[in-house]
């Protein structure tokens, strides 16, 4: 069984209709798992379900063998999960450094090492450490967002469309950084609109359609699968 897994998840927001139907996504430590699929397939919903942001009617979420289905998102943060929302993922009026400090809010220990690590990963952030995050460019803001999440020293990093609205060059750069993060032993689960590029770096890929698992395989296998290529990757 995977390190983190959301199994047979069925549910939706509030009392609304179900969006997920018997959906399963999971990720190993040090691996990158990518959720792709057409618009409205429930990709982000699946990720939010894993993070406890909607009520599951059926199914469970298990991390490191421990069932956390009943925990609030905040409690999951303490279990080592970190979530980077797609939009509004920084504190705009606070400096880059304070953004990172807020990421480490629950930690009592010395955070300078983590801060150095983040700065090592995203050198531009060190340069702009005293600038309010709201004044940065889109790509830089995404870096702050990922950096903030890393400051919690997570075991799982969850990214909701990290490359939305950034240029292709910045996207490649961000993917490189994400691979680097995975190499440190963190499990990465992300939702991506740019399916081809994302599957390229993925150890595991989930293709969702209408809230159900359609294809599940390694990233390379999915890229090679003619059916997947034709339906979801534009040939």
């Amino acid at each position: 069984m995977s390190y983190l897994i959301g199994q047979n998840m069925t549910g939706g927001y509030g009392r609304g209709a179900d969006i997920l139907h018997d959906c399963t996504v999971g990720v190993e430590k040090g691996e990158i798992a990518v959720i792709v699929g057409p618009n409205g397939a429930g990709k982000s919903t699946a990720m939010k379900a894993v993070f406890g942001m909607l009520n599951l009617r059926e199914g469970s979420v298990v991390i490191d063998g421990e069932d956390i289905t009943g925990l609030s998102p905040q409690a999951r943060v303490r279990k080592g999960m970190a979530f980077v929302p797609q939009t509004e993922n920084v504190f705009p009026s606070m400096t880059v450094e304070d953004n990172l400090r807020m990421g480490a809010f629950v930690r009592e220990d010395d955070i300078t090492d983590s801060m150095e690590q983040v700065f090592g990963l995203f050198p531009i952030l060190e340069e702009k450490r005293l600038q309010p995050a709201g004044e940065l460019s889109g790509g830089q803001r995404q870096q702050v967002a990922v950096g903030r999440a890393l400051m919690t020293q997570p075991k799982v990093l969850m990214l909701d469309e990290p490359t939305a609205g950034v240029s292709p060059i910045v996207m490649d750069e961000l993917f490189d950084r994400i691979i680097e993060v995975a190499r440190t032993g963190i499990a990465i689960l992300m939702v991506e609109q740019n399916a081809k590029q994302a599957l390229n770096i993925a150890d595991k890929g989930y293709v969702l359609v209408q809230g159900r698992n359609r294809f599940t395989d390694t990233g390379a296998a999915l890229l090679a699968d003619p059916e997947v290529r034709k339906a979801f990757l534009g040939g």
Binding site: P73, Q74, V77, R78, A82, F83, P85, E88, N89, V90, F91, P92, S93, M94, M102, G103, F105, V106, R148, T152
Partner: peptide, 10 residues
């Protein structure tokens, strides 16, 4: 600044 993100930060 950002209530949701504050919650996500614990």
């Amino acid at each position: 600044d950002n209530e949701n993100l504050a919650l996500l930060s614990g």
